[in-house]
Computed example of a mutant assay.
Amino acid sequence: MSSLTTEDLATLADQIKQWGSELGFQQVGISDIDLSKHKDALHRWLQNGYHGDMRFFEQNLDKRTQPELLHPGTVRAIAVRMDYLPPDASFAKALSATDKGYISRYALGRDYHKILRKRLKQLGDKIKHQFADSDFRPFVDSAPVLEHALAEKAGLGWTGKHSLTINKDNGSWFFLGELFINLPLPIDKPVEENCGSCTACMTICPTQAIVEPYVVDARRCISYLTIELKGTIPEQLRSLIGNRIYGCDDCQLVCPWNRYAKISTEADFMSRPALKDQTLLQLWSWDEQTFLDNTQGTAIRRIGYQRWRRNLAVGLGNAPFDDAIVNALQRARDEACVLVREHIDWALAQQHASKVSMSRTTSRLIRTIEKGLPRDA
């Protein structure tokens, strides 16, 4: 390592970015590993209980803000991003079709964890091939790593008020990954924050989970409720979830910077027909084996069949009244596990309320029409 000059390291940094581009990353940046300024905010977030049931956030706190403890010898983090927005996202159509299940667009294709990790390892191998003394470890949302903080320091973008990374020229529809390395590479400069006075993401959030700029209460976040939460979805939040059965994209959809987002050309991130634009009833009809078959290789599979059914039950409860929905829920109720049955009962009550409301609206309409008709009509 001592034989590497400043010029050697600068040349290598340029080479790393070129290799990253060849491996399919849209951007590569390099940062130091001083994350001390994030320590207090992380502690406040945890003290407020905003992490919900994600107890793993309470563990390895020192490692989150001191990457060298996570991988000894680390002096730099190579941060990368990869676009994932599929060309057929059709957000408005999917969210407005309340009889269909909405799945966050990042999850419609192959699980990004495996793809990015594999390519980060390939990047590390290229570096090691050139410098045998180099030592690295790749991370993709799989360890106590403050990935948005590192992306920000590496110049990939700034942290938006929804807590996601935003790039001025590419929006926020991208995955992040990191390669911890023991080479003192030259670092990139952070970019200026450009959210300004905009609070669109905070306003649009269906459950008002962004409790203050840059702070998300996961306990109210639809992504947490439909993915991370293992138990019962709080009843007061169920009707706000709508037809979102896995994740939520609303805060990104409304972000002005996403007008500059780029469509992904990565084949693995293309939408799978079995998951996209399917009706809630079609998805509800899947048995466990069908669920496993249709979600093989995707991020969805990790929530398991029962939580998938829990989420679908909430979606069916929020759908317009339909005898077919009621019948399907009733048929499944007796054999459902306790978790799913509770949400089925709620959904049935919602469907009944929707039917009553629809009946009253129809009656009012008939009375209004009759009042305007001639007596002999």
Results as ranks from 00 to 15, higher is better:
N182Y: 04
V356P: 03
D62T: 10
R119H: 13
H71C: 11
L116A: 03
N48T: 07
L146E: 05
Q330F: 06
P144A: 11
S223G: 12
A319H: 01
A336H: 01
L348D: 05
L365F: 13
M82C: 11
R220Y: 13
M82V: 08
V140K: 04
K189S: 15
R272A: 10
I222K: 03
T362M: 14
G372A: 14
L69P: 00
A151S: 13
M54E: 11
A143V: 07
R360I: 11
P86A: 07
V215M: 11
T226C: 08
T65L: 01
L373Y: 09
D62R: 11
N327Y: 09
D135Q: 15
H38A: 12
G231H: 09
R307V: 02
G315Y: 02
K355Q: 15
Q252N: 11
L237D: 01
L35F: 07
L283R: 05
T362K: 13
V314S: 00
P72F: 02
N243A: 02
F174Q: 05
D345K: 09
D334W: 12
K118H: 13
R333Y: 12
T5H: 10
T232H: 14
R105E: 03
N182K: 04
L183Y: 00
V28D: 06
I204F: 02
A328C: 07
Y112T: 07
L237K: 05
L164A: 12
C201P: 02
D188E: 08
G177S: 08
L280A: 00
Q122Y: 03
T290E: 14
K276R: 14
D8Y: 10
I78L: 12
R331K: 15
W257L: 03
F269W: 00
R244T: 01
S21D: 14
A353D: 15
F321W: 11
V75Q: 08
G177Y: 01
D277M: 04
Q208A: 14
I78P: 02
S359R: 14
L240A: 13
I344S: 00
A41L: 09
T65H: 05
M1H: 13
A89V: 13
E22C: 07
R238E: 04
S3W: 11
A218Q: 01
S2G: 10
L225M: 08
I325D: 04
D14M: 11
P256L: 03
L348I: 09
K262W: 10
E288Q: 15
W308C: 03
N60P: 06
D334Y: 12
E68A: 14
Q122G: 05
P206V: 02
Y84M: 01
T361I: 14
A149F: 09
E192S: 13
A89E: 15
S363E: 15
N60A: 13
P72M: 01
R64H: 08
P190N: 07
L348Y: 04
A79M: 15
H352K: 15
E235Q: 15
T265R: 14
R238S: 01
Q47L: 14
H352L: 12
G317S: 06
H162C: 10
L225A: 01
A328V: 07
V211Q: 00
Y260I: 00
W308Q: 00
S31R: 00
L348R: 00
G247F: 00
A97M: 04
Y50C: 02
R309A: 06
T98M: 11
L365Q: 13
R341F: 08
F180L: 15
V216H: 05
P234T: 08
L348K: 00
S2C: 10
Y305E: 02
H43W: 12
K63W: 05
I369T: 12
W45L: 07
Q282C: 10
Y106F: 12
I115M: 06
